[in-house]
Nucleic acid binder design. Structure first.
Lengths: 154, 154
DNA sequence: TACTTGCCTGGAGTGCACTCCAGGGTTCTA
DNA sequence: TAGAACCCTGGAGTGCACTCCAGGCAAGTA
């Protein structure tokens, strides 16, 4: 009965920075748990990414254990960024396939990134709109700590 | 076998604006499908919001059909904004409960909105970071349409 | 009046992105 | 050389936010 394997950085109280620690330099072979610590993903998720083709095949030790390399971490960094944009995993897999397919997929990759960029811009605008509403509402709460009967309007 | 009831505005090609049309003025009773058109939510989702307590009880016609009022639409607008922030539905339900509970929940509501505001700011910062990465990568694609062998790095 | 379209309910189903389990091999530390 | 801690696989389970279904009333129209 192995103890839990999770790397639970969900309820991490140290918010503010990126989830992972900095990569030690001069190293180019990492175990799955090291990568988990570095990226903030769980080992489960790392294996799952590989299964679904989001991660190019990772090197193995002579006994079959994963040994990640710096370029894998670079890829995971990019994936992490794309994930932050809200891009569906399926789309990221598609991008990974294009990369694996070779240079002739250049145009399609470019287009995918460009479209993602547009999405991000739109999302930022959306959030700023929401922020305005939130600020207005917070203002109402701030200077009128009472007479909140008609909360549902405005 | 009633025909489908969905209001599918998923693949709406008229992107750019908010999903719903503008509210006609001088009206204060709307059927569920009118509200669906106005908010971009499906009728299913509107009923579900009510079931889970995200929506205060909606007026009914003498035969039990929902008749939404302008204040309900206002509430749905706010919910829509909060949803855009990525706030979980459970938290929105919590907020709705606080509103229903009355004025003495003032402080908690305020705190909830304030925390949400922080989240939105953090999310915008995150997205801007992602945008920088995306722009860098798009730049690479743009001026070097070839020699993409080491795609996985940077 | 017949017909078509809209709306009602409770409960089941869907898609996504993980997350965990069982059962077993591997690696590190005292 | 134990024992603890780590890692492997395929497949099943979870939580969220919807989304749909079946069976049945209600409302508008020719």
């Amino acid at each position: 009965m192995t103890v839990t394997e999770t790397t639970a950085s969900r309820g991490d109280s140290c918010a503010g920075g990126p989830r992972g620690r900095r990569r030690p330099d001069g190293q180019d072979r990492y175990t799955i748990s090291e990568v988990a610590a570095l990226t903030g993903l769980t080992a489960h998720t790392l294996r799952w990414y590989e299964r679904i083709g989001l991660m190019p095949h990772v090197d193995r030790s002579h006994t079959g254990q994963r040994r990640y390399r710096n370029r894998d971490l670079d890829w995971l960094d990019l994936v992490g960024k794309l994930r932050l944009t809200g891009m569906p995993v399926a789309d990221m897999v598609r991008y990974a396939e294009l990369v694996r397919a070779g240079d002739h997929t250049y145009a399609e990759r470019f287009e995918l990134l460009r479209a993602t960029r547009e999405d991000v811009l739109a999302r930022i605008a959306e959030l700023q709109g929401t922020l305005a509403v939130l600020d207005r509402k917070i203002g109402v709460y701030a200077d009128a700590g009472h007479a909140l009967a008609s909360e549902r309007s405005s």
